[in-house]
Design a protein around this nucleic acid. Structure first.
Length: 283
DNA sequence: AAACAAACCTGTGCGC
DNA sequence: TGCGCACAGGTTTGTT
């Protein structure tokens, strides 16, 4: 489910509700959620510590702790992070609960990690172990929102990769954070077919693609991300995003293109992922 | 090396 | 109404 804009919205929720607070107690239900280490490692690593910051690299949430360690959360396909009053009824598939201590201005609360499909994870690690426990972090590419990201950087990286353009956009080692929804939306705005060959893109074309990446992702963050029909994605307060109303191709196969008004949106498969595009607008 | 398929899970929506 | 199948926002692993 969640791509960069959704994860960024969750990060902002963590900054608002969780940063600065002490974790009094930790519950771990499903062991699969903490499979990278263990239930004991998560409880030991989080009990009694204060969350001092909430960051993000691509689709990875990275919270610093006053113990010097880091908590990583990945939502994968169906993960949610929710904040609720202490003792509130938990939804099904609540696998981790962090009990947040009261502050001068805040009642005690609980932070829930909810994840029906159990692909998501929560893990605590220290910097000395990072390369062993979360090796993929070192391989992540540029974050197009959090990092300095220029058309030249994109040009260099695209020209090192083979395969179809959409596949390369989905490659987290090139640009971190783009998933299936935003890849399609970005390619539509950039007026590029998903099966273009990256090596054949001229600088001016890559500059246009760069602009589309930045503007689609920024607009989606501004709208609080995309919530689809199943309402799987919601923010920390349980609110849905609004960017789905601005989708121009994703999920619109067979419908008339909103940009040219001529073609119907085509559907194909790229890297095993459903892909929607306009055969007239995108070349 | 690189491209693709399968795997990991559960829920939902659709056609019959 | 009920059943079975296809498919879903991601990433890793194994296979051609």
């Amino acid at each position: 489910m969640p791509e960069l804009p959704e994860v960024e919205t969750v990060r902002r929720g963590l900054v608002k509700h969780v940063v600065g607070r002490r974790i009094e107690r930790v519950e771990v239900g499903r062991l699969r959620t903490v499979r990278r280490t263990s239930r004991e490692a998560l409880i030991d690593g989080l009990s009694g510590v204060v969350i001092t910051s909430a960051g993000r690299r691509g689709k990875y949430l990275l919270c610093e702790l006053d113990s010097g360690e880091t908590m990583m959360i990945h939502l994968r396909m169906s993960g949610q992070v929710l904040v609720s009053p202490r003792g509130a009824t938990r939804p099904p598939h609540t696998h981790v609960v962090l009990h947040l201590a009261a502050t001068a201005t805040q009642q005690p609360q609980e932070l829930w990690f909810v994840d029906p499909r159990t692909f998501g994870e929560v893990v605590v690690f220290d910097s000395a172990q990072a390369s062993v426990i979360v090796p993929e972090l070192a391989r992540l590419g540029i974050d197009p929102i959090a990092d300095e990201f220029t058309p030249e950087m994109l040009f260099e990286r695209l020209h090192k990769k083979r395969g179809k353009l959409k596949s390369v956009l989905l490659d987290q080692s090139v640009v971190a954070g783009i998933g299936n929804i935003y890849a399609d939306e970005i390619l539509h705005l950039a007026k590029l077919r998903p099966d273009r060959v990256p090596l054949q893109l001229a600088r001016a074309t890559v500059t246009r693609l760069h602009g589309a990446i930045v503007s689609v992702l920024r607009a989606a963050v501004e709208a609080g991300g995309s919530t689809l029909r199943d309402t799987q994605y919601v923010d920390l307060e349980g609110d849905t995003g609004n960017f789905q109303d601005q989708h121009r191709v994703y999920g619109r196969a067979g419908e008339q293109c909103l940009t040219c008004g001529v073609a119907r949106i085509s559907q194909t498969t790229v890297s095993g992922r459903t892909t929607c595009y306009c055969r007239i607008c995108q070349r």
